[in-house]
Design a binder for these strands. Structure first.
Lengths: 350, 350
DNA sequence: ATGAAAGCGCTAACAG
DNA sequence: CTGTTAGCGCTTTCAT
């Protein structure tokens, strides 16, 4: 039914091998005259490479896979876009898997991507803290790499991976420093689930800044929650409920923007003025951060670049290694920039 | 290097065929005793189905493809999530392609997905108005279907496709009606590019409501722009620049939420009160719509469901047809609900 | 520079 | 119910 390479070869009056070399193979070893004929035949017959067949024959497909928590989350949506851009630039399609930050789901997805023989896998979600989960995932990924697969990670997933490293820690420190410079002393932080590494990195930055300012990090009010809108709402609710208004923090930094959006929503519902009564800051600078009520102060991470760089990193790893190099892993640091908007201001006078 | 079905068969002491039947084939024609052995062998050997090989043999892979304008756009991100959910429920992986609403890019993506032998293609972006683009895309999709592929569309892409139909027209009419009920008479509308069909559908709804209220649709102030944040900003800028404040509309409905976010941003920058001076409404109810400044009135579309239903529709089309049916296409209508929030209010008194 | 032929790993008749 | 045997469409030595 479908037009095959054989059909094209016959139509062009050449052998299967020659047609393959012209249409797909990289070796430049075919006469221009023949090449032309083959291309013409392919064109008139409407030939489309059968990707599975090609993948089977060369033991590697024309796709890359991305593992992330949720495509519908603006943070990951932007990363997925970057992945698509870099992948399609390399002529590859992208498979995106939403794992809901669940190690088991992620493991399953890795196996499926491996089974697909994707050319590369990008770990875009956060790494896990559970050693057991990490071990199992590492194993699955190792098996994949042993069969020629390439892996790149966004944010730290352990020393075994080429990694694109956004400045989570220093970004958070910078943001917290800015809050302190505004005069805040009672700063609460809404962080993410304990099973993820990214929230811990960012929290570390917040504590760094606190300590640097002579404040006691151990006394910091830290609320743990899911990195989601609902999570943010719940967390700030608990913070407010912990004591009377006089004990409320004057600023809260949510370690992810969607989470901060939830905080803002809850505060709005409760009639707590932002930034009048409490300043709020987020992290990521997702697309609509500047349009929230009020516009959100945050840390800008080059989201799309994260995805694109990770793909390039993984794809480059497949290439012949640069001279002198051992099997050392590459880390690409990416800057984070503090962006102050209307959701933060000096603390209220007592 | 990799563990193959043959390895599993040998290890289990059965034939290739039997191993295949147990591990992949659907036919329930293997003894429980043998099945058990095969599964155990697969488990201990760490067998992973080679998807390309399987796809080649059955002429259809374990993936579905989604064509959308931009994964980083919240509207499409949510749809992509729905696609993933339905696909993974069926044991399939999803390939998502961002086309930037460009017909050429879309055509290229269709060819690649076809080449991948994806089980189904979901057209999640808007259809085009250019007959030539439509014809070429239809052709490419027809070729794909002739080879066993299934296609489903979200929003109208022509009569040839099973379609999930969100109530674009009536939703827009309902929203506009609500504005009119609030007392608005000078309503401007920010619509999308002419080359897309979706904006036209929604605009039709707005005009319907205007006419129903005895207002002259022909007199409506319609600004065309890209469906993006920047597009929204530019459009409202033009509307305000068209005349003095006394001639400004009292309400503007942007036919997409990101676009409305841009309108809000521009208005905020210019110091125009919303909804005090001008009411603003959007369309889609993307995740952060309720958190914008001010919370955006809009039309709620069940985004994730759109994607999930489309996948089910496409997958069901491959199944044996229900009795009595011709080749008639199925249309699944999905409701749209008007959600009024703080961005809309009665017009100012003169 | 081009062609012939042997697989890649799996499925699907067809036998037994 | 299970095993044998052809392919699926493409890449890739190995000859020529």
């Amino acid at each position: 039914m479908a037009v095959t390479l054989g059909d094209v070869a016959r139509h062009a009056g050449v052998s299967l091998a020659t047609a393959s070399r012209v249409l797909n193979g990289s070796a430049r070893t075919v006469t221009e005259a023949l090449s032309e004929k083959v291309r013409a035949s392919a064109e008139t017959l409407g030939y489309l490479t059968n990707a599975p067949a090609q993948a089977l024959a060369k033991a590697s497909g024309a796709t890359v896979g991305v593992l992330l928590h949720d495509v519908a989350d603006p943070y990951f949506g932007a990363i997925a876009r970057g992945v698509w851009d870099a992948a399609s630039e390399a002529g590859l399609l992208s498979l995106v898997a939403s794992t809901d930050a669940d190690p088991e789901t992620e493991l399953g997805a890795i196996r499926m991507l491996h089974g697909q023989r994707v050319r590369a896998i990008v770990l875009a979600g956060s790494g896990y803290t559970d050693p057991d989960a990490v071990r199992r995932i590492d194993r699955a990924l190792d098996a994949y790499r042993e069969q020629g697969g390439a892996v790149a990670a966004i944010t730290d997933h352990g020393p075994g991976y080429d990694t694109v490293l956004p400045a989570n820690r220093s970004g958070a420190a910078g943001l917290t420093g800015a809050l302190i410079a505004l005069g805040h002393r009672r700063i609460a932080v809404v962080t993410g689930p304990e099973r993820l590494r990214v929230p811990a990195e960012r929290l570390g930055g917040v504590l760094d800044a606190l300590a640097a300012a002579g404040l006691d990090p151990a006394a910091a009010l830290v609320e743990r929650t899911e990195f989601s809108h609902a999570g943010g709402r719940a967390a700030i609710g608990r913070i407010l409920a912990a004591g009377g208004p006089e004990s409320w923090p004057t600023a809260v930094v949510a370690l992810s923007d969607i989470c901060a959006a939830g905080v803002l929503a809850e505060l709005r519902d409760r009639g707590v003025a932002v930034p009048g009564r409490i300043s709020v800051a987020g992290f990521d600078d997702i697309p609509l951060a500047a349009d929230l009520a009020p516009p959100l102060s945050t840390v800008r991470i080059p989201l799309a670049r994260l995805g694109a760089e990770a793909v390039r990193l993984a794809l480059a790893a497949g290439e012949p290694q640069p001279a002198g190099g051992g099997a050392g892993r590459i880390a690409v640091p990416l800057p984070a920039e503090v962006v102050l908007r209307a959701s933060t201001a000096p603390p209220p006078h007592d």
